[in-house]
Amino acid sequence: GQVNVNNTTYTFPTPKLAKEFAQKAAKKYNLTVHVSGNTVTVK
């Protein structure tokens, strides 16, 4: 799974890890998680 945070893309071996990372990043920066297919964007 891929996660985009502040124009930086992070790649994870599983969608589960990507989702967990996205949720932590969203909480940390007070942003929202947007899911589109296999790509998760935090903005």
Results as ranks from 00 to 15, higher is better:
Tyr29Asp: 05
Ala18Met: 01
His34Trp: 11
Val35Lys: 02
Gly37Ala: 04
Tyr29Val: 06
Asn4Phe: 09
Asn30Pro: 04
Thr14Lys: 02
Val3Leu: 11
Gln2Ser: 13
Val33Ile: 08
Ser36Phe: 09
Asn4Trp: 05
Val5Asn: 11
Leu17Ser: 06
Lys16Ile: 07
Gly37Asp: 04
Gln23Val: 11
Lys43Tyr: 15
Ser36Ile: 12
Ala26Gln: 11
Pro15Lys: 10
Val35Pro: 01
Glu20Phe: 07
Lys16Gly: 07
Ala26Leu: 09
Leu31Arg: 04
Thr9Glu: 07
Asn7Gln: 15
Ala18Pro: 00
Val33Gly: 01
His34Ser: 14
Val35Trp: 07
Thr32Tyr: 05
Ala26Phe: 07
Pro15Tyr: 07
Val40Lys: 00
Thr32Glu: 13
His34Glu: 14
Thr32Pro: 05
Pro13Asn: 06
Lys27Trp: 06
Asn7Leu: 15
Thr8Val: 14
Lys24Arg: 14
Val42Glu: 00
Lys16Leu: 09
Thr11Val: 14
Asn38Lys: 08
Pro13Met: 06
Lys24Thr: 07
Tyr10Asp: 01
Thr8Arg: 15
Phe12Thr: 01
Thr14Ile: 02
Asn7Met: 15
Lys16Thr: 08
Phe12Lys: 00
Phe21Gly: 01
Thr32Met: 08
Gly1Thr: 13
Phe12Ala: 01
Lys27Pro: 03
Pro13Arg: 06
Leu31Glu: 05
Thr8Ile: 15
Asn38Val: 08
Ala26Glu: 10
Asn7Val: 15
Glu20Gln: 13
Ala26Trp: 06
Val42Trp: 04
Leu17Ala: 12
Val42His: 01
Tyr29Thr: 08
Thr8Ala: 08
Gln2Tyr: 08
Gln23Ala: 13
Gly37Pro: 00
Pro15Thr: 09
Lys16Glu: 14
Pro13Tyr: 04
Leu17Thr: 04
Gly1Met: 13
Thr32Cys: 12
Leu17Gly: 03
Lys28Asn: 09
Val35Ala: 03
Val40Glu: 00
Ala26Val: 11
Ala25Lys: 03
Asn30Met: 06
Thr9Met: 09
Asn6Asp: 09
Gly37Arg: 03
Val5Ser: 12
Asn7Arg: 11
Lys27Glu: 12
Ala26Asp: 03
Thr8Cys: 15
Leu17Gln: 11
Asn4Thr: 13
Val33Ser: 03
Ala25Ile: 15
Asn30Gly: 15
Val5Thr: 12
Asn30Ala: 07
Thr9Asp: 04
Asn30Cys: 06
Glu20Leu: 14
Gly37Gln: 04
Val35Ile: 09
Asn38Gln: 04
Glu20Val: 07
Asn30Trp: 14
Gln2Met: 12
Val40Cys: 00
His34Ile: 15
Asn7Asp: 14
Thr11Gln: 06
Ala25Val: 15
Tyr29Leu: 08
Val40Asp: 00
Glu20His: 07
Thr11His: 10
Lys27Met: 09
Ala25Gly: 02
Thr41Met: 07
Tyr10Lys: 03
Phe12His: 01
Val33Lys: 00
Gln2Phe: 10
Val5Ile: 13
Thr14Asn: 10
Val3Phe: 08
Lys27Leu: 10
Ala18Cys: 02
Thr11Ser: 06
Tyr10Glu: 02
Gly1Lys: 12
Gly1His: 12
Val35Glu: 02
Ala22Ile: 02
Gln23Glu: 14
Tyr29Ala: 08
Tyr10Phe: 10
Pro15Trp: 06
Phe21Asn: 01
Val35Arg: 05
Pro15Ala: 14
Leu17Tyr: 04
Val3Ser: 13
Tyr10Leu: 08
Leu17Cys: 09
Ala25His: 06
Phe21Ser: 01
Lys19Asp: 06
Asn6Ile: 14
Val35Thr: 03
Val35Leu: 10
Asn38Asp: 03
Leu17Val: 04
Thr32Arg: 05
Asn4Tyr: 05
Gly1Asp: 11
Gly1Ser: 11
Val5Ala: 11
Asn7Tyr: 15
Phe12Tyr: 02
Tyr29Trp: 11
Ala18Trp: 01
Thr9Trp: 06
Gln2Asp: 11
Thr41Gln: 06
Thr8His: 15
Asn4Gly: 11
Asn30His: 13
Lys16His: 09
Lys43Gly: 08
Val5Asp: 11
Ala18His: 00
Val40Met: 02
Lys24Ile: 14
Lys43Val: 15
Lys16Ala: 12
Ala25Pro: 00
Thr32Ser: 09
Lys28Met: 13
Val40Ala: 04
Leu31Tyr: 06
Lys16Val: 06
Val3Tyr: 06
Thr39Tyr: 04
Thr8Met: 12
Thr41Glu: 05
